[in-house]
């Protein structure tokens, strides 16, 4: 590239300044939430949420974790639905996509269309809701958080089908057949090991959609608040902080005599909600970026 000219150096400095500005608009909101969560309650009541606490306090976190077990349970539910949903969803999607990628499969056009058509037309919330509640009766059960809407989508099927088509050489499959391998053996022993990048990418997308989902809980978990996922729990707490001490949650003796730091608790809850994603983000961001790139342009 040669030596960067002085003019170019100035231009680069300007670009970096612009990006630092944009990145600050992303980070500052998170910072406000975090800083407020470790600010002493009375100060918050007096001055509102701020970026720099006059007096630090971790009372909000202490209260959340000592007053009730509900938050820990909600974490557990979120973890459970994310793990089960991702394994189940990824399996179903992969098994559906693979035959569509095989030219020798006679039903490939029909079944591709069946998946694809769901991207064009959908019955909408009302009939989906009635199907899941009246026909399958998932209301107020853990199944409601796993099965409706999230398990499989046509977009991931097509992403995967394209990957198989482009990356699994037909000669390899034919050679395996000549060696006497069955179709399932070929799929599990040859195709899957060659497909780890797409499995990671699609798996990540499915996992994030489960972890972040609050809609299924909103639609289907109306009575059994003990089945709330983390997102539903947070959703409820934003408007009703007293829910923390409601009868649905096993309240410990800690709450007696301790005044609830309601203002800081709200921010502490948000922090507790984003921490898992923030901690894992550096590890999976590569796959996340890759997924967006292959998915968006070549749908």
């Amino acid at each position: 590239m040669g030596i960067t000219s002085k003019r170019e150096k100035i231009a680069q400095a300007v670009f970096h300044l612009v990006f630092i500005g944009i990145c600050l608009t992303v980070i500052i909101p998170f910072l406000l939430v975090f800083m407020s969560s470790i600010t002493e309650e009375n100060e918050l009541i007096r001055n509102g949420y701020r970026f720099w606490p006059g007096k630090f306090s971790f009372a909000a976190y202490e209260y959340i974790f000592r007053s009730s077990t509900a938050l820990v349970r909600a974490y557990g539910i979120s973890l459970l639905i994310t793990v089960v949903g991702t394994i189940l969803g990824l399996s179903i999607v992969t098994l559906y996509a693979y035959p569509l990628s095989r030219p020798e499969f006679k039903g490939k056009n029909l079944f591709t269309f069946i998946a694809f058509f769901t991207m064009l037309f959908n019955g909408g919330l009302v009939s989906s809701y009635l199907t899941w509640t009246r026909l399958l009766n998932v209301k107020n059960s853990i199944a409601a958080l796993i099965f409706p809407f999230l398990l499989m989508n046509a977009f991931n099927v097509i992403l995967m089908k394209n990957y198989f088509k482009a990356n699994i050489p037909s000669e390899l499959i034919e050679a395996a057949r000549i060696d006497g391998a069955g179709e399932f053996g070929i799929f599990f022993r040859i195709v899957l090991p060659l497909s780890t990048p797409i499995l990671a990418t699609v798996g990540l997308f499915v996992a994030i959609s489960y972890w972040n989902d609050w809609m299924n809980g909103l639609y289907f978990i109306t009575k059994r608040t003990d089945l709330f996922s983390l997102q539903n729990y947070l959703n409820r707490m934003l408007t009703d902080i007293q829910f923390l001490n409601s009868s649905a949650n096993k309240v410990s003796s800690y709450t007696q005599g301790v005044k609830m730091p309601a203002t800081s608790i709200k921010m502490a809850l948000a922090v507790v909600g984003v921490v898992p994603i923030m901690v894992l983000y550096p590890f999976f961001q590569r796959y996340f970026v890759k997924g967006i790139t292959i998915g968006a342009v070549k749908g």
Partner: peptide
């Protein structure tokens, strides 16, 4: 797909 998408379409 039948349960999650096609039945609601007819629904």
């Amino acid at each position: 797909l039948i349960i999650n998408n096609y039945i609601p379409m007819f629904g």
